[in-house]
Computed example of a mutant assay.
Amino acid sequence: MELLIVEDDDAMASALEAAVVSAGHKATRVSRGTDALLVHRKFDVILLDLGLPDLDGLDVLRKLRQVTQCPILILTARDDERSVVLGLRLGADDYLVKPVKLVELLARIEAVTRRMAWTTGAQDRNLTVGTLAVDLDRRVASVGSRVLPLTATEFDLLALLVQHAGSVVTREQILDALWGDAFLASSRSLDVHLTGLRAKLDLPGFIINVRGVGYRIESEPA
């Protein structure tokens, strides 16, 4: 697997590259956001710092999401709620605050790539619930004739819920399937992506909150 490391700090970039290579992956490092926008097509996963010398990392994320669904993990010193929420809403698949434990980083990378493989595995490739249609091969979801502008994580969350339509999917199952950790200290990533997904679906009552347990989509919504 080829990873793009977008990081302007030499020491941090070296540590990230060493960790990635030790896990059997290939890594390329750039220090500027403009460089990331030029070369992103060559890579399977992007590790993105927000404090870049030429562009704000959130602007880089916004531009990348206009052209690619490649998994993007934010690695940054910004731990304020606004930055976390904005990064996830702009399409980041995960948000890690520095200093990052390299073992945890590798686990998160494996989780997002496993999730991508999961949505392209051998299963029913076209799912429908009421007016909602989900095409797993094309990674496209639509309500009637309206194509939903979902981020990669929003799509994977929707696909997981639709595949279990009629049954409750627990928060732990979602966290484990999408982030590789059923017991994250903070599950606000899920809350942010779920809020974004519901807004884009614009189907009140479609995703039901089963209090204290998880979420359910009815197999035959009214």
Rank of each mutant, 00 (worst) to 15 (best):
L4A: 10
D10R: 14
S14R: 14
A19W: 04
V20C: 12
A23R: 11
A27L: 09
T28Y: 02
V30G: 04
R32L: 15
L37Y: 06
K42A: 12
L50G: 14
G51R: 13
L52F: 08
G57L: 13
D59F: 03
V60L: 07
R65E: 08
V67Q: 09
Q69H: 11
I72Q: 09
D79Q: 05
S83M: 08
R89N: 04
L90H: 02
G91H: 06
A92G: 01
A92C: 03
D93Y: 00
D93P: 03
P99N: 01
V103M: 01
L106R: 07
A111F: 04
R115I: 00
W118Q: 12
T120K: 13
T128W: 01
T128F: 03
G130W: 05
L136N: 11
L136G: 10
R139N: 10
V143N: 12
P149E: 10
L150S: 12
L150G: 13
A152G: 13
F155R: 09
L158S: 13
A159D: 11
L161G: 08
L161S: 06
V168P: 06
V169G: 12
Q173H: 05
D176Y: 05
D176P: 00
F183A: 12
S189Y: 01
S189P: 05
L190K: 03
L194M: 15
L194G: 15
L197G: 10
D202N: 13
P204M: 01
G205T: 04
I207W: 06
N209R: 14
V213G: 01
Y215S: 09
R216Y: 01
S219R: 13
S219G: 01
